[in-house]
C-alpha cells in the first residue's frame, strides 16, 4: 500500500499560544477519496495548507507523496490544491486562467482543460469575476486537475454552492478519480456528500485527530446500543464507549468494538457516517466540558 500523506507529531502554532493543529500523526493511503471533517477551527485548513507547503510546521514532520511539501517545483507539480472559496483571478478571463495554468505547470493537459471548460458551458472570454459560484468552482477544479496531479487537496470546495452546482462539482471530481485514480483529500461539513464520495475518513476536533480510517471499517466497528437505563455498564473488553446519553429510563451508547454484542438487554443498531462524525465531534466537547467542570472544582 503506497501512502499519499504521512504526518508524525505534526503541529502548527500561530503566535505564541494558539495551536491550530497539535500532535497530528496520520497515514493517508493512496487511491482513496478522503473526507476531512471537523468543526470550524478544528485545524482542517491548517492541515491542508501544511500539506501543500503554504505553511511550515512548528513541530513534527509531514511527507507528501514521499517528499517535503514545499521542496521543489517537481513536488508542487504532483499536488493539486483548491483553496477555500475556490479563489480565481476575478479580472482575468477563463481563457487567461487556462493560459496561466499552461505556463506555470509542466504537465499541463491543455486539450483536457479546454474540453472540460466547453462541457461546463462557460464562455472562455468571460471574466472569472462574472462567473456564478458553481462555474467558478468548476474553473478552479479544472485548473487543479489539468496539471494532472497525483494528489488533489480541496478545502471546502462546495460549501457555498447550491445543490445542483455541488452535484456537478462532485461528478467532475469523481470522474477524475475513475479516470486517473487521483488521490483526493476533501474537507467538508456536508456529511451527506462525503457519504457518497469518500471511502476514508479523518475527523479533526480541537486541533487533534479524533478518528481516521477506511469508512467501511469504521462503520463495521461502531454500533449504537439502546437499552434500559444503567449507570455502570459492563461491556466486552475491547468495547470503547464513544458517546453516552441517558434519560431516566433509557441508556444510549455509541461504542467501538471488534466483537459482536450478544447481551440481549441491548438493542444493537448499525450507524451511518453522520452518526459517526457527530459522535467523535461530540466526544471532544464532552472532554472539554469535563475539563472545564474539573477546573471549577479546584479552589
Amino acid at each position: 500500500m503506497s501512502v499519499a500523506v504521512t504526518t508524525d507529531g505534526l503541529g502548527k502554532r500561530y503566535g505564541r499560544r494558539r495551536w491550530a493543529l497539535s500532535d497530528c500523526s496520520l497515514e493517508v493511503p493512496s487511491g482513496h477519496v478522503v473526507g476531512l471533517v471537523g468543526p470550524n477551527g478544528a485545524g482542517k485548513t491548517t492541515l491542508l495548507n501544511l500539506a501543500v507547503g503554504l505553511l511550515s510546521a512548528t513541530t513534527g514532520t509531514i511527507s507528501v507523496l514521499g517528499g517535503n511539501p514545499s521542496d521543489r517545483p517537481e513536488q508542487l507539480a504532483r499536488v493539486g490544491f483548491v483553496a477555500q472559496d475556490t479563489p480565481t483571478y476575478s479580472h482575468l478571463s477563463v481563457a487567461d486562467h487556462l493560459h496561466l495554468g499552461a505556463r506555470l505547470n509542466p504537465g499541463w493537459d491543455a486539450h483536457w482543460a479546454a474540453k472540460r471548460i466547453a462541457e461546463t458551458g462557460v464562455d472562455p472570454t468571460q471574466k472569472a469575476g462574472q462567473l456564478s459560484g458553481g462555474q467558478r468552482a468548476q474553473l478552479a477544479l479544472t485548473l487543479a486537475l489539468a496539471k494532472r496531479p497525483e494528489l488533489l487537496l480541496l478545502d471546502e470546495p462546495v460549501a457555498g454552492l447550491d445543490p445542483l452546482a455541488r452535484r456537478e462539482f462532485l461528478q467532475t471530481l469523481m470522474i477524475a478519480v475513475a479516470d486517473d485514480g487521483v488521490t483526493v483529500v476533501l474537507s467538508s461539513h456536508l456529511v451527506a456528500d462525503l457519504e457518497r464520495v469518500s471511502d476514508y475518513l479523518i475527523v479533526l476536533a480541537a486541533a487533534h485527530v479524533e478518528l481516521a480510517g477506511e469508512v467501511e471499517h469504521l462503520l463495521a466497528t461502531h454500533r449504537r446500543l439502546v437499552g434500559p437505563r444503567r449507570d455502570s455498564v459492563s461491556l466486552p473488553g475491547d468495547c470503547r464507549v464513544i458517546d453516552a446519553s441517558h434519560t431516566d429510563r433509557q441508556t444510549t451508547l455509541l461504542v467501538r468494538t471488534d466483537t459482536p454484542i450478544h447481551d440481549p438487554a441491548w438493542i444493537v443498531e448499525d450507524i451511518d457516517l453522520e452518526d459517526l462524525v457527530l459522535a467523535y465531534m461530540g466526544q471532544t466537547s464532552n472532554v472539554e466540558r469535563n475539563r472545564r467542570s474539573g477546573l471549577r472544582v479546584q479552589p
Partner: peptide, 15 residues
C-alpha cells in the same frame, strides 16, 4: 460502466 454510474450519481468509483 463504472464511469457511467460515477458520472450520474457523483459517487466514489470504488463503491
Amino acid at each position: 460502466t463504472v464511469k457511467e454510474v460515477v458520472a450520474r450519481l457523483a459517487i466514489n468509483p470504488n463503491t
